[in-house]
Amino acid sequence: MAPYAFRLALQSLIREKWINLLSILTIASGLLVISVTLFAAYNIDAATRRLPEKFSMILYLEDNTPQDRLESIMTALRKKRAVSSVRFISKDEAIKELRGLLKNSNYVFEGLDENPLPDSIEVKLKKEAVTAEAVKKISEEAQTIKGIKEVDYGEKFLAAIHSVRSGVTTIGIVLIAIISAGIIFVCYSTVKILFYRRSDEIETFKLLGATKTFIRLPFLIEGGIIGASGGLATLLGVMMFYYIVIARLSAAIPLLSTLLFPRTVFLSLPLIGLFLGITGAAIAIGRLRY
């Protein structure tokens, strides 16, 4: 039965080529929006995942903190579970680093007779501890340690990163859900039209003794092929965009070369299309009655 169902599906795809082509392009457009969303979400996620490794807290010390006090502060910090490393930065090292960073703007340091920077301790946290809440808690605890004047941990920056991440995820999920529903609707409408156009034929099949599976299978296959073709068209479009457009633009805009291509996700686009197509077709056929 299955080979014949494939034959019927292919015959219908060819016979109704324009409506099917239109559906494939519509699905491809929808999947393209999903792909762009996934591409953006994937890259934002990847970028923000790398940030915790670079994240550090700076604990500014009171002036003239004695060596034994400094040792005890550092020991206390090392004992904290979330802390991965602790490094003392003397005020001289700090100004040296600053001068290195601002070597093109040396005028900033003109007229400075003495080093205004305080001694500090750089605390790096374990990757899993870099969340806005955890960092805030550690900062508050650090501020209670005697000898620490101020804690700087880029509070707003950290909160912004987390809100960007969760925002992108939420928008991505909503967008993907809406567009997936749209794609299912396109497949539903297409198969429904094809079903109506062939209603006489289906009625004859029923009268000749065709089972529901015999009648349904070609439509499910057709819906699946339409969905999968849409997915394939999107995959080709996305690959061309990434490997040709982004690759060429990277020469002019180096930042683009850091973008990541979630190959596995994109390779599954035809499968996603197949699933959405079959779902739409199944809803369109509905319950057959004899």
């Binding site: 029923k206 000749l208 003794g209 009655r289 004899y290």
Partner: peptide, 24 residues
Amino acid sequence: KESTIPLLRRHIGVVFQDFRLLAN
């Protein structure tokens, strides 16, 4: 049962008044 109707129809050949031939 509805699911048995196709099996019944396979025992019966019908010459329909309106032929019901598939034009395509």
